[in-house]
């Protein structure tokens, strides 16, 4: 297929073919990571700015490595060390950086729609690296890539997304993607952490974790955003663990070929038991490796020649 997008803003806007195209390329880029010299000249002379207004380790390192492997030059800007602290607006910051003749902007921001906002106003290609509780498209793509390594056919797949779905942009991106593949998705969370927007999606809801985990091929556990507890969304951590944590006991009841996924960072012993995270069923570190390959594929595809003019 001929890729004609200039920005990657959400999974919602992508077609199934476009997702497949990214993944096919990503598998080829994974091979580059295994080479003695992990560097190809595809984006030589291009400049990428990683604008991270929210803390991040995995995503920022992953994007930075992807850019370096493609021979692009990259600069990282974080909110805490930039003029944002002095009151500069997002648009001013971005426009000023772009005036230094950059080609691509990777943005993480606490406001939903921040990436789209920039895409509509900048000349550069824009990649959404997480915008508020809206979407985190590159995370979902690396998750799809990881699942494809063990389960080729998404149509006959049973997926469980477990945990703090309300605040999770990853969950939204995953749901949009799985919907395009017509995958059976079940959500499991305390009612207070279950979003109201579910009417948009064709998903099942199950509040009993022991029932929910039984027949799934993929068990995707979300991070319990501990800061939420103070807001009274669940009574106590102990109670959450009792009702919604993937404990070792529960892990022993899952299907034999199920895989355990998590977008990181893990709160060991809260949403996920440490032994389960380190088990052979866990593909969590594979997700991280695939993240670099997926981001290389996206940077490469978005930066096509004439589409940028």
């Amino acid at each position: 297929m001929n890729w004609s997008r200039r920005h990657l803003l959400s999974i919602e806007e992508l077609s199934k073919d476009e997702i497949d195209h990214i993944l096919e390329n990503a598998f080829s880029f994974k091979e580059v990571l295994l080479r003695p010299i992990k560097k190809v000249p595809a984006l030589r002379g291009k400049t990428v700015v990683n604008l991270f207004f929210e803390p991040s380790t995995r995503t920022l390192v992953s994007f930075s490595l992807a850019e370096k492997h493609l021979s692009a030059d990259s600069v990282n800007v974080s909110a805490s060390s930039s003029s944002v602290k002095k009151g500069e607006t997002l648009l001013d910051t971005a426009k000023n950086i772009e005036s230094m003749k950059t080609d691509m902007v990777v943005i993480r921001h606490s406001s939903a729609g921040a990436a789209k906002f920039l895409a509509e106003r900048l000349e550069s290609n824009v990649i959404n690296a997480g915008d508020g509780t809206h979407e985190h498209p590159t995370q979902a793509l690396l998750d799809f890539m990881t699942i494809k390594e063990t389960h080729k056919d998404f149509r006959n797949l049973k997926v469980l997304i477990l945990g703090d779905i309300l605040h999770s942009r990853v969950a939204r991106s995953l749901m949009w993607g799985f919907m395009k593949y017509k995958t059976e998705v079940t959500l499991c969370a305390p009612p207070t952490l279950m979003p109201l927007y579910l009417n948009d999606f064709n998903v099942k809801v199950e509040h009993d974790i022991d029932k929910a985990i039984k027949d799934k091929d993929v068990i995707y556990i979300l991070r319990m955003q501990l800061e939420r507890q103070e807001k009274g969304l669940f009574p106590s951590l102990r109670e959450y663990i009792k009702d919604f944590s993937m404990t070792y006991e529960r892990f022993q009841t899952i299907r034999k070929k199920s895989i355990i996924m998590h977008p990181g960072p893990i709160n060991r012993g809260v949403e996920l038991d440490g032994t389960v995270a380190d088990s052979k069923e866990s593909v969590i570190l594979e997700q991280v490796t695939n993240g670099v390959a997926v981001r290389m594929a996206i940077l490469y595809l978005l930066n096509g020649g004439k589409n940028n003019e």
Binding site: N2, W3, N25, S28, E31, V32, G304
Partner: peptide, 14 residues
């Protein structure tokens, strides 16, 4: 010619 061509071609594994 990557910076000139219309579409970046699909990459296959070396």
């Amino acid at each position: 010619d990557l910076s000139i061509i219309d579409y970046h071609p699909q990459v296959f594994s070396t």
